[in-house]
Amino acid sequence: MENWAIEAKDLVKKFPQRAPSNGNGAQTKKAPARWWPFRKREPKPLFTAVDGVSLQIERGEIFGLLGPNGAGKSTTIRMLCTLLEPTSGTAIINGFDITRQATQVRQSLGTLLAGERSIYWKLSGRENLEYFATLYHIPPAIAKKRVEELIERMELKERANELVEKYSTGMRQRIAISKALLARPPILLLDEPTLGLDPQAARNLRELILDLQKEGHTILLTTHYMEEADQLSDRIGIIDQGKIIALDTPEGLKRRIEQREIVRLEVAGWYEKMGEQVRQLPGIEDLTVRKVEGDDLWEVSVQSLNLRQSLPALVGLVNHNGSHLVNMNIQKPSLEDVFIHLTGKALRD
């Protein structure tokens, strides 16, 4: 048997169906107040958030889980870190079973969830780290040294005694990551580590993640930025609607659409029907359309097996009926295009 850092076996998570949320978990419709806090039992339809995820992650590897909003990335991470019980399936983390050996699993993991919201804003950075070090059962003398070491490393020395509420998002994220690193866990789970960071802070964090790998950590990270997954990951799992639909190295994934050429168009006055017409052109494989906000412009990405052949017809078509081509460039396939090829839709919209 191979000694994987993380091995997920057919993980499934079903939730009771809930009202459509606005993305941050808040319910849009407020239930009427009741004098009795229990709800009447109604048979609730189930919604499958994670649908049979199997993964084998090697020690020392950075594995990127790439997928759009609501794909089931966070739910997968929450099952791996024992916050959620899988509906079926299981996972072995560092040799420990997530359902039967939860405490050992938690000792093996450093988890970053919900970013800056995961630490106490009314405590200083140092107080936060000292607190979590104690909850990790790190002896006081070692904890003290370790906290200073992390504060130093994250370049937070000057501000370590200020309340976290006065920090920038990037600084809060660094405290949150330090919290995950406290006990020197062999495996790190990072859920959208760069979400909400400015480009500079995100770049620094990505460098930090690569350094952590060099120091021997196994890292499972989720993201919906393909450049990030591409740059960081040794292997990538593309997840959509709870299923891993492709799993390979970034190069391997891109090789799948190697024969394809990608052309990005900016079109003024795009209309629905044009999409169908483009799809029917010879050599056209996939197509996604995104409206440019606040402008009468659409970004259209077209994958073609033979651009030479399809380009003239394509240009003719969009310069028709009052709509016209504003800009156009031809690109090498990116992971975004792999995603479009696999799902027929854009990763971000």
């Binding site: 000792q107 093996s108 000292e130 104690t134 909850l135 990790y136 059962h137 006990a183 062999p186």
Partner: peptide
């Protein structure tokens, strides 16, 4: 896990309660 800084014990439980 190898290399972990954690040393769980009864007194570390108490320290956690205090923390």
């Amino acid at each position: 896990p190898a290399g972990s800084l954690a040393r769980p014990s009864f007194s570390s439980d108490l320290r956690a309660l205090w923390a």
